[in-house]
């Protein structure tokens, strides 16, 4: 399944490193990554493929959420279909 991860919050060193380490541990492949600072807020979107993940989507979602809390960021993962439906004809 293709999913969009969003990481939003105050910028600091090592965000990408920690998030990608968690994805690697879960065997989730990163297909595309885009990061910027919007209105002084660190904003990153990552397109991932969870097809070969070694855990369920629910477990991955919870792990990312917990990681976000630990780092003081909002991290969530949602199926890509939602955004495609809303923003592409």
């Amino acid at each position: 399944m293709k999913a969009i991860m969003t990481v939003i919050g105050p910028d600091r060193v090592g965000i990408i490193a920690e998030v990608s380490a968690l994805l690697a541990k879960s065997n989730v492949n990163i297909l595309d990554l885009s990061q910027t600072i919007m209105e002084e807020i660190f904003t990153m979107t990552i397109l991932v493929d969870t097809a070969a993940a070694n855990c369920t989507f629910d477990a991955l979602s919870s792990a990312l959420e917990a990681k976000g809390e630990e780092m003081g960021l909002s991290i969530r993962i949602q199926r890509r279909d939602l955004f495609t439906a809303m923003h592409r004809i």
């Binding site: 969009i4 969003t6 939003i8 595309d32 885009s34 910027t36 919007m38 904003t43 979107t45 397109l47 969530r76 890509r80 939602l82 955004f83 495609t84 809303m86 923003h87 592409r88």
Partner: peptide, 12 residues
């Protein structure tokens, strides 16, 4: 890849 501002818009 989807536009980052589109994604932000949906989240907002």
């Amino acid at each position: 890849m989807l536009n980052i501002s589109d994604i932000r818009q949906t989240l907002d």
